[in-house]
């Protein structure tokens, strides 16, 4: 049971990653692809954050009375990654809007068919 609980975090992370990957690979709608991309990203956040947690520790803000703190380094990396993530998603959405204006659709297949014609 403890083994199961210990690995649960990683398994949830893996499931999220695979879910995001599946959305990106299988769905043709570009907005949905971007949502899948962001789910993939969040799974990476979890992948970084969950090893940094120390059981019985507290948030890495130094205060008297606490001895054990979680690892601050992944927090720093992920903090910037989130904001960068939303900026890149915005860039992708801008591309989607332009594609919609140029082709009148946001489906992958339809754009490719129009290109082929």
């Amino acid at each position: 049971m403890t083994v199961f609980l210990a690995d649960l975090n990683y398994w949830v992370t893996i499931f999220l990653m695979i879910g995001g990957l599946y959305i990106i690979a299988a769905h043709g709608n570009m907005i949905k692809k971007l949502v899948g991309l962001s789910i993939f990203q969040t799974s990476v956040y979890l992948l970084f954050l969950s090893p940094g947690k120390v059981l019985g520790g507290t948030a890495p803000i130094i205060a008297p009375g606490f001895e054990v703190y979680s690892n601050p380094l992944p927090h720093v990396l992920i903090l910037t990654a989130i904001v960068v993530g939303v900026a890149t998603i915005a860039l992708g959405l801008a591309l989607v809007v332009r594609i919609h204006e140029a082709y009148g659709t946001i489906e992958d297949d339809e754009v490719q068919e129009m290109e082929a014609d």
Partner: peptide
């Protein structure tokens, strides 16, 4: 997971900003 800074950012960015952007694109 003790990452309070990150949680704050995620709540503001993920639930706030990207939802607004996606709705605008929709």
């Amino acid at each position: 997971l003790d990452a309070v800074d990150v949680a704050m950012t995620e709540a503001a960015v993920g639930a706030g900003m990207s939802t607004v952007l996606l709705l605008a694109v929709l």
